[in-house]
Design a protein around this nucleic acid. Sequence first.
RNA 1: GGUGGGGUACCGAAGCGGCCGAACGGGCUCGCCUCGAAAGCGAGUGAGGGUUCACGCCCUCCGUGGGUUCAAAUCCCACCCCCACCGCCA
Length: 420
Amino acid sequence: MIDLKLLRDDLDSVRTAYDRRGGVPQLEELAELDKQRRQLLAEVENVRAEHNSASRSIATTAPENRPAAIAEARVLADRLKELEPELERAEGEIARVAGYLPNLPHESVPQGSSEAENVVEREVGDKPLFDFEPLDHATLGRQLGIFDAERGAKTSGSRFVYLTGPGAILEFALTRFAVDLLGGRGFTPVITPVLVRERAMYGTGFFPTEEREIYRIERDDLYLTGTSEVALAGMHADEIVDAAELPLRYAGFSTNFRREAGTYGKDTQGLVRLHQFDKVEQFSYCHPDTSWEEYDFILANQEQLLQALEIPYRVLVMCGGDLGPMAAKKIDHEAWLPASDRFMEVTSATNATDYQARRLQVRFREGGKSRLVHTLNGTACAIGRTIVALLENHQRADGSVTIPKSLRPYAGFDVIDPKP
RNA sequence: GGUGGGGUACCGAAGCGGCCGAACGGGCUCGCCUCGAAAGCGAGUGAGGGUUCACGCCCUCCGUGGGUUCAAAUCCCACCCCCACCGCCA
C-alpha cells in the first residue's frame, strides 16, 4: 500500500513514478474516489459531532425535558444510519482499488515494461573453461545421486524432487554456511511458519496481485508461503518497535511453495523450477532514512556468498515493469551456467520501503512520534538453484564435482564422485 | 477433539449503560536534586483520520463483525485469537 495522501498532495509525482512501471491504470480512478470519500467523510463527521453533543447533553437534561431531547437525538441517529453505509461503501471501493496499486519505484529503477528491459550492471567472477564437454546440472545430478525427479513425480507430480545422498548433505551444508555468514552480521536465525493467514499474504503484497502463485489450504483458510519473507514481515505486524532496536535483521529458513502457474514447459529438468524448495533469506526491518544503505548491505552479503562458493554471476537491475508489487527496487544475481550456456536467477533483493510496513502496521518510535519502518528482503541461499550452479561450474572431466573450499567444512567432503 | 479461563493504550492491570480514550502501577521523555549516576520529587506521555497557514476544532478505535439504545469498553448474538489442563501425536 502506498500513502494515499500522495494522491492528493502530489498526484503528478506519483504518476511520474508509476510511468517507470509502464503506468498504473487505476491511478486516476483512485484519486477521484478518494476525493469523493473525503467529501462524504466530512459530512458524516459533522452529523456525528452533532449527534454526540445532543446525546451527551441528555444525561444532564432535566427529566421532564428528556423525551423531547431524545426525540431530537433520534433524528440525528437516523440520519447517520443512512449516511454511514454510503461512507463504508466508498471506503471499501478505495481499499479494493488501492490494493492493486504497486509500490513507487525508486528513481534509480530503469524505465521499462518487461524483463527485456532489465539492465545488466556488471559481471563478476571467471566463467570456467572446460577442456571437455560440460554436462548440464540435471545430468550431473542424476549421475551423482543428488536428486531423484522420477520418484518425485511419482509421489507428488512434476516439479517435485527428492534431494538424495550428497544432495541432502549439500542442503544442510549450504544452509549452515549461509546462516553462519549472516549470523556474524546481525541476522538472527529464524525458522518461519510456512502456513500463514491471509493477512500476511496481503500485508506483504503477494495478495491480491500474485494470488494465483500461492497454494491455498482451503479447509483451514491458510496459505503456503512461497518465501519466508511473508512470515518474517508478518512477525512484527501491529508492533511499534523501539528505534534503538533497528535494524532488526533475520536470517529466515523455510521450505517454499510455488504453484508456478503459467510456466509450463519452462525449466522442466532438475532443480531450477520446483513447486517446493528450501531457502535462507535475509530480511531487515530498518529506519526509513537508511534503507538504501541497508539494501546495499543485503546485496553485498549476496555477492559474498556467491563469491565464497566460486560461482560466476552477473548483477541484473530490474526495470519498472518487472518489479513485484511490493518492490521499490529489485536487483537479481544470476549465476552463470556453463553447460546450459545461460544465466539463471539465484538471488533476488527487494527494498519494499514502507509498502509492507503500511499494510502490516510495523512502526517505530522516534522523538515521541511513530513512523513506518522500511522492510527489505534478499535471498541468502536458494538451495536448489545454488546446487545447480555448483554442479555446472565445479564439474570435472571424470564426471565428478568439487566442493568449493569455503563449503568443505560444512559438507564434510571435497568431491562428489559419480555413483559406481 | 474435550473442558475451563481470558483478549482494555508501549507493558501490566482496573472499569461492567451517560464528560471513560479510559483509574492505578511500570516503562519512556523532560525538569529538579547530584561532581556524575541511582534513589527521590514534579510535569508530560496511545494510535489512525478529517479540517486549518497555524493555535486549535472535530471524528474513529477497549479482539473482529453484527444487534439493542438518544447513548456501549460496559447489555445481547456470532465469530476469531490466546492461555491452562485432558486426549491424540512428530
